[in-house]
Each structure stands twice: as C-alpha cells, then as structure tokens.
Simulated assay, not measured.
Amino acid sequence: MATAGRKPKPHLAAVREGTFRPDKHTEGARYEPRDPQEPDWSDLLPGDEDVQAKAHEVWQTVVPAVVRAAGLTDAQRHTAIEYCLTAARIWQGERVLSRDGMTVMTERGIVKHPMTTILNAYRSHFRSLTGELGLSPSSAARITPPQDGDDDGDIFD
C-alpha cells in the first residue's frame, strides 16, 4: 500500500518506539544538555505549603531520573513542571475526598463529590504526561537513553 501523503512519525515518537531511521525521520530539535531548574513552587501553588512540598518531592524524585533516562533538558522543563503540579493537585484532591467523603449533601440530595470529576480530569492529564516523560513501564521501554561522550556532530560538545 502506498504511503503517499502520510507524514513520517515525529522524531521523538520514533525514538521512543525504537523505530527511528535516519533515512525516514529527521532528528528534530536539539537542546543544550543542561539539567532543568526547579521552579519556585510558592509562585505556582500559592498559599498551600503542603501542596508545594508535594510538588517539590515529586520534582526531586522524578526529574533526575528523567534527565538520566531520556535526556530531559532545561528547555523541556515545562512538561516536568506540569507533571509535578498535576501530581500535587491529585494528592491535594485525594486529601479533600478523604476528609469530605465521596458524596456530599446538596439541595437535591446526596450527590457525587465534585472533586471526583476534577480528579478524573487531572488523572487523565497525568497519564498523558507520564507517557510524554517516559515514566510508565511501556513508555520507558521505548526510550533510548542519551549517549555519554561524543556523538559525532553534537553542536553542544
């Protein structure tokens, strides 16, 4: 079957899946290899020191691993920040549900706690970020770790 008109897979998708071929894919953007800088969580999550601490904990646990495994750079840090924020918000929402219960009383009677709907949206976003960063077992298996040393043509050497 002809593949005319079909776009090749994006570079990172091909690398993650282990199907990258120089004759079919371009390498895409290349970023300077610099560890991402952790944001000031009090700017992003004002007023709740427990949630700020959770975001910091997730950053300290996850980001160094992603830097080693996938070569995450400072230019790509916004995905990691979003991952940490989402994880912290899920943690915060679970605390609310633990305190309030899964249902609430309204003028129409007992209904599902609104936080369950919010948490479902955060969890969906969390799953997509987990795949982007290679943190699920299946996405991690598709990532080729960055190579140490000279890669013949690295503009940042």
Score class of each variant (00 low, 15 high):
residue 4 A to M: 09
residue 5 G to T: 04
residue 11 H to I: 03
residue 11 H to R: 13
residue 12 L to V: 11
residue 15 V to A: 12
residue 15 V to E: 14
residue 16 R to W: 00
residue 17 E to G: 09
residue 21 R to G: 08
residue 22 P to Y: 02
residue 22 P to D: 15
residue 24 K to P: 04
residue 25 H to S: 07
residue 25 H to A: 11
residue 26 T to S: 14
residue 27 E to R: 12
residue 29 A to C: 07
residue 30 R to H: 12
residue 31 Y to A: 07
residue 32 E to P: 02
residue 32 E to D: 07
residue 33 P to Q: 08
residue 33 P to C: 07
residue 34 R to S: 15
residue 35 D to K: 11
residue 37 Q to A: 15
residue 38 E to D: 07
residue 39 P to E: 10
residue 40 D to R: 09
residue 40 D to E: 11
residue 40 D to S: 09
residue 42 S to Q: 10
residue 46 P to Y: 00
residue 46 P to S: 06
residue 46 P to V: 03
residue 48 D to M: 04
residue 48 D to E: 10
residue 50 D to P: 00
residue 51 V to A: 15
residue 54 K to M: 06
residue 54 K to I: 01
residue 55 A to R: 02
residue 57 E to C: 05
residue 58 V to I: 15
residue 59 W to H: 08
residue 60 Q to E: 13
residue 61 T to K: 12
residue 61 T to S: 13
residue 64 P to Y: 05
residue 64 P to Q: 07
residue 65 A to L: 09
residue 65 A to E: 12
residue 67 V to R: 02
residue 68 R to D: 14
residue 69 A to C: 01
residue 69 A to W: 00
residue 70 A to V: 01
residue 72 L to C: 03
residue 72 L to E: 01
residue 73 T to A: 08
residue 76 Q to V: 02
residue 77 R to K: 15
residue 78 H to Q: 15
residue 79 T to M: 12
residue 85 L to V: 09
residue 86 T to F: 00
residue 86 T to V: 06
residue 88 A to P: 00
residue 88 A to R: 01
residue 89 R to C: 01
residue 90 I to W: 00
residue 93 G to N: 12
residue 93 G to V: 04
residue 94 E to S: 10
residue 94 E to A: 09
residue 96 V to T: 13
residue 97 L to N: 03
residue 99 R to S: 14
residue 102 M to C: 12
residue 103 T to W: 02
residue 103 T to I: 07
residue 103 T to G: 02
residue 104 V to I: 11
residue 105 M to Q: 14
residue 108 R to S: 11
residue 110 I to E: 14
residue 111 V to W: 03
residue 112 K to R: 15
residue 113 H to W: 02
residue 114 P to F: 01
residue 115 M to Y: 03
residue 115 M to P: 05
residue 116 T to S: 14
residue 116 T to K: 10
residue 117 T to H: 11
residue 117 T to Y: 08
residue 117 T to N: 13
residue 118 I to E: 11
residue 118 I to K: 13
residue 121 A to S: 13
residue 123 R to Y: 03
residue 124 S to I: 05
residue 126 F to W: 09
residue 126 F to A: 08
residue 128 S to H: 09
residue 130 T to V: 01
residue 131 G to S: 04
residue 132 E to N: 08
residue 133 L to H: 00
residue 134 G to D: 01
residue 136 S to K: 01
residue 137 P to L: 09
residue 140 A to L: 06
residue 142 R to N: 11
residue 142 R to A: 13
residue 145 P to E: 10
residue 146 P to S: 05
residue 148 D to A: 14
residue 148 D to L: 13
residue 149 G to L: 07
residue 149 G to I: 06
residue 150 D to T: 13
residue 151 D to W: 06
residue 152 D to E: 15
residue 154 D to L: 02
residue 155 I to W: 04
residue 155 I to H: 05
residue 157 D to E: 13
